[in-house]
Computed example of a mutant assay.
Amino acid sequence: MSPVDLVVAGGGPAGLVTALHAARAGLDVEVWEPRAGAVDKACGEGLMPGPLASLQALGVDPPGHPFHGIRYVDAGGAADADFRHGAGRGIRRTVLHDALRGAAVAAGARIAQRAVGAVTQDGEAVTVDGTRARHLVAADGLHSPLRRALGLDAAPARQRRYGLRRHFRTAPWSPYVEVYWGREVEAYVTPVAGDLVGVAVLGARAGSFDERVRLLPGLGARLGDAAPVGAVRGAGPLRRGARARVAGRVLLVGDAAGYIDALTGEGLALAFAQAEAAVRAITDGVPQRYERDWARLTRRYRWLTAALLAGTRPAAARRVLVPASRVLSPVFSAAVNALARPVGTS
């Protein structure tokens, strides 16, 4: 039996967009995802204008709630930066998953509820649990078992940050994604429907979701007595490195390829761009080129996120971040609009 062209390990957004590009390029592709139903995870759920436009260009346009910029908030006030070229959209992760899965299946990709175990490869193909494939894409998340099995895990970071997310039944009170800054934690509030907001709290400090929100009194007052919806979901440690993104006929895409932090909200945008680049490298017959493409696509994210993490680590720096963003409004606006552009543009 001839091998399939591509097996994608992981049925989250990174894996599904990879499968969508591959199927539309004429490849015979299977997505292996061990979990049934829509894949949910702790994330901010906000798509900036650039990646939203990229998604729509694929014919995928899931419903959500628009937002028109980013607002930084602390106990002393706020700083706003409006998008110059269209709105972003808050989209429930499960809604996004269903839209991407439907598009991938419509394009011809097959979805199988199974996990990836043993992987071997030779010069012609990858053997994944007895299935021969010309290539394998590992899109199996932040703690990628495939990355570890291939010996590509980088040394763990010394300073670790974690994220917790929960939804609340309340009408969005702001046309922005609001970022609440405290001494030890920050929270991202994203409107995802006309009566629902998502709250993602990030930080190195241990504690429950409610304990972390209490460190941000302005956020607690805004939420008031809004009813929580669903369970708290967690993620972390957020920083995960990969020593390489290509190992023979295996390519790493999305969080599996390495991740620094959710600080700039670029996770989905990066995953979409990497998926397209990985498939293009495969169809061009030069999978090793993806290593260089990955470095180019993620350069801005890696530099900016590392700089922001270092700059906001001291408590004194966190205290002046919002006032400085307000005083240096053109700089803040330029930074936000740089992040709003499609990944890979300068």
Rank of each mutant, 00 (worst) to 15 (best):
R245Y: 10
A278K: 08
L219N: 08
A271W: 00
L238K: 04
V250P: 02
D255N: 13
G265L: 01
G234W: 09
G234S: 15
A262S: 15
A273S: 14
A256K: 04
G254R: 00
G267H: 07
F272N: 01
G218M: 04
A271I: 00
A278F: 13
G218P: 05
R239D: 01
R249P: 02
A231T: 09
R240N: 07
L238C: 01
E266M: 09
R239T: 15
L251Q: 04
A226N: 12
V246F: 11
G230M: 00
L252H: 08
R240V: 15
A262G: 12
R222I: 03
A235P: 01
L252M: 08
L252E: 13
G234H: 10
R249H: 15
A256T: 04
A277L: 07
R280N: 13
I260M: 07
R243K: 14
R245H: 15
V250N: 02
G258K: 00
I260S: 10
L270N: 13
I260F: 08
R222K: 13
L215D: 15
G267I: 06
A275T: 09
V253Y: 12
E276M: 07
A221T: 05
L252Y: 14
G254Y: 14
G234E: 09
A247Q: 04
P228S: 14
V253W: 14
G248T: 03
L219H: 10
L270T: 06
G224Y: 02
A278Y: 14
A273F: 12
A269T: 05
L219V: 03
V229M: 02
A227W: 03
L251G: 07
A244I: 09
R233S: 08
T264K: 03
A273E: 05
A242G: 05
A247G: 02
A257D: 07
R239F: 05
G234C: 06
R233T: 10
A242E: 00
L216H: 10
T264I: 11
G230F: 03
T264E: 01
A273R: 11
A275F: 15
G254I: 10
A247M: 00
R233N: 03
P228C: 13
A227F: 01
L219M: 08
V279D: 13
D255Y: 09
D261L: 08
A256D: 03
L252P: 06
G234Y: 13
L238A: 04
A277G: 12
F272V: 08
L215A: 14
A235H: 08
G254D: 01
A231W: 11
P228Q: 12
A262T: 14
A275K: 14
F272G: 03
Q274W: 08
G220N: 00
A221P: 05
L216Y: 04
R243M: 05
V229P: 05
R280M: 10
I260Y: 06
G218R: 11
A227C: 00
G241S: 12
L270S: 09
G241V: 02
A278L: 09
